[in-house]
Structure formats: structure tokens, C-alpha cells
Amino acid sequence: MSKLGPIRHFPSPVSCDSLVLQGLRCEWGAGVLHLVTSLSHSLILTGHWKFNMAPHDKELSEDLKKRIVALHKDGLGYKKIAKTLKLSCSTVAKTIQRFNWTGSTQNRPHHGRPKKLSARAQHHIQWLSLGSRRMSAASIAAEVEGVGGQPVSAQTIRRTLHQIGLHGCRPRRKPILKMMHKKPRKQFAEDKQTKDIDYWNHVLWSDETKINLFGSDGVKRVWRQPGEKYKDKCVLPGVGSVMVRGCMSAAGTGELQFIDRTMNANLYCDILKQSIIPSLRRLGRRAVFQHDNDPKHTSKTTTALLKKRRVKVMDWPNMSPDLNPSVGHPQTEGGGVQGLEHPPAP
């Protein structure tokens, strides 16, 4: 430090820009420059130093642009002009280059209407939408208007979100799984992943469904006026539906059983005796029966019957209707199974 001499105290405030650092680089060298740079960041954070450059998000006034051009014509360089007007060298250079190319200090006209939202507002919109995925565009617009005071339409919010890759979509539905459900599902997958194709060929899958004789269960709407609730054009005909229980395996479909009254454990045992167990016997001695954990299926009466008939039942995890291949197979308009009135024997 003796060769460099004592470091003088800077006056307050000090202009902290590239010109100061360039001067320090020439006078002191790279080592001391690194020390001063680190010190400057600390002083800036504590408020002892401040920047004197123009904000980057604001356009220079025409008077300031003309002063830059006039000083350049007088022979001043970019650095001296920047130091005199307290601007960055890049701003001065761009202003003079634009004047040399176009002969004017005015910016070229922009294409289309200027953006209504600033970059900060767009970031705030993205933050709100990612923080609450179910927040509507109208709610986001109200939130943005409350923070910035600028009225924004819901369509502007949607357009902004589309530009950053966010689109309004209908959410997928899935069962509500807790840890008590996830562990058995994982254990089920680990136990069954080692089973060969011969094992799965001997599994009899079963399920029940409702068949609509006409129409579907989908929600439909009609336009009507007060007092037209029971007008012929405003009602939907309902012919009825029927509940059935069937089964299937790799060999084909099993016998189909129609349900004409409320299902309980005794009725389910009758269905097992009449159709399910006979279909299971056709798969041989290695047959495995699958049904879900409905209370009627796990009742003492049903468990005793399956044990008495020596039926091997597959352990089935809770909240797993998607694991049954018979769910969602060929359906009618109403969501039931079709073509099983006279099923072939497996």
C-alpha cells in the first residue's frame, strides 16, 4: 500500500458508475479494484453511495437527447458526455448512433399498440396465477388493479398468461389418496410385477355397472322462461336403467347377472353362486377372483362363502378402481356394458 499512497476519502454522494471503476483500474490495479468493488456494494446497500444513472425503464426526454447530440458535435467523447449528464456510456452511444443513422433523436414508431402492463405487472400476474391455480382471470385483474391502481380487464389477464404459456384447462380428477392408501398400492405393484402371463390369464375380474336404456347421465341444459319447467320442450324423457354385474378374463367374458333390487351381502352371495363362481371354475384350479373392497364384498357372509367354496381372492388395495381392467371397457352411451346379454363362456 505504500507504493500506492493513502486512499483518499470519497465525498458524499459519489457517482458509482463504470467511469469511476475504469479510473481505479488504471491507477491502482486489479487487486485493489476488487477490494473497492466489494466495498462499493456494501456502501450502496447501506445507502452511503447512490447511482446517478438514468433509470433503464424510462425513455430519455427529447431535450436530453438534443443535449447529447450537441455535446458530441462540440467534440466531447462518449465518456465525458456520460459523466457530464450523469448517464451511462451505452445510453449516450445509442442516442448518437440513432441520430447518425436517421438524422433525428426521435425513436422509430412501434408496431401495434404499446403494452398496457409493465414487466413488473406481468411478473405479478404470473406469481398470482402460479400461487393459486384456481384463481379466475377476473380475480387476478382485481388484485392487480388493487396493487398498481391501473384498471385491467380479464381478457388482458388471459392474454398475458397465454403469452407466458399458462392456459385455462379443466383439471383432471383423481381419487384422494392418503399415505394409508399409497402404501398398499405400492405394495400391490411390487407383489404383482413378478407375476408371469400365466398368472394373469387365470384372473377373473368382476365389477358392476348401470346401463341406461335411453340417453345418458351427462348434464344437459335447456333454455326456458319462468313457468315452463314442465313444458314438453323443456323436459328430458327418462326410460329407466338397469344394474348388472359381470366378469371377464383373458379367455373372454363371463356370465352376466341382472340386479333388480337393492344390493346387499345376501344378494351378492346369490350372484356369486349363480354366475361368478361358475365362470371362475372354467379357468381351472389356478383361478384367482378379483373384486373391490365394497362393504358387501368384505362382509362376514361373503367371506365365509368364498372360504367355503375355496375361492382364491386377490388382495385389493383401497381407492384403486383404476387398476381393474373391466372398468371403462366397451360402454353404451350411458356408461354401461354392451353386448353381454348372452355372453360366451370363457
Rank of each mutant, 00 (worst) to 15 (best):
D217T: 14
D217C: 05
D217L: 13
D217A: 13
D217G: 08
D217I: 15
D217R: 15
G218I: 15
G218N: 14
G218L: 13
V219R: 04
V219F: 10
V219P: 00
K220I: 15
K220A: 15
K220L: 13
K220H: 12
K220V: 15
R221L: 11
R221E: 07
R221S: 03
V222A: 07
V222S: 03
V222M: 11
V222N: 04
V222E: 04
V222P: 00
V222L: 10
V222H: 10
W223L: 06
W223E: 01
W223G: 03
W223T: 05
R224A: 10
R224G: 06
R224Q: 11
R224P: 00
R224C: 04
R224V: 12
R224L: 14
R224E: 11
Q225E: 12
Q225R: 13
Q225C: 09
Q225A: 14
P226E: 10
P226M: 10
P226A: 12
G227V: 09
G227Q: 03
G227H: 12
G227E: 05
E228G: 01
E228S: 01
E228Y: 10
E228I: 14
E228F: 08
E228V: 12
K229W: 11
K229M: 05
K229P: 02
K229R: 11
K229T: 11
K229H: 10
Y230G: 03
Y230S: 07
Y230W: 12
K231V: 09
D232V: 08
D232M: 13
D232T: 02
D232F: 04
D232H: 11
K233V: 08
K233H: 10
C234M: 15
C234H: 14
C234L: 06
C234I: 10
C234G: 01
V235D: 04
V235R: 14
V235Y: 13
V235P: 00
L236G: 03
L236E: 02
L236D: 09
L236A: 09
L236C: 08
L236F: 15
L236S: 09
L236M: 14
L236H: 10
P237G: 14
P237W: 02
P237S: 12
P237A: 13
P237C: 11
P237F: 03
G238R: 15
G238K: 15
V239H: 01
V239F: 02
V239E: 02
V239S: 03
V239D: 00
V239T: 12
V239Y: 01
G240N: 02
G240M: 07
G240Q: 04
G240T: 04
G240Y: 08
S241G: 04
S241A: 07
S241Q: 05
S241R: 01
S241F: 10
V242D: 02
V242G: 02
M243C: 06
M243D: 02
M243W: 04
V244E: 01
V244K: 04
V244H: 01
R245D: 09
R245A: 14
R245Q: 11
R245H: 15
G246S: 08
G246V: 04
C247M: 05
C247R: 06
C247I: 09
C247T: 11
M248H: 05
M248D: 04
M248A: 13
M248W: 08
S249V: 07
S249P: 00
S249T: 05
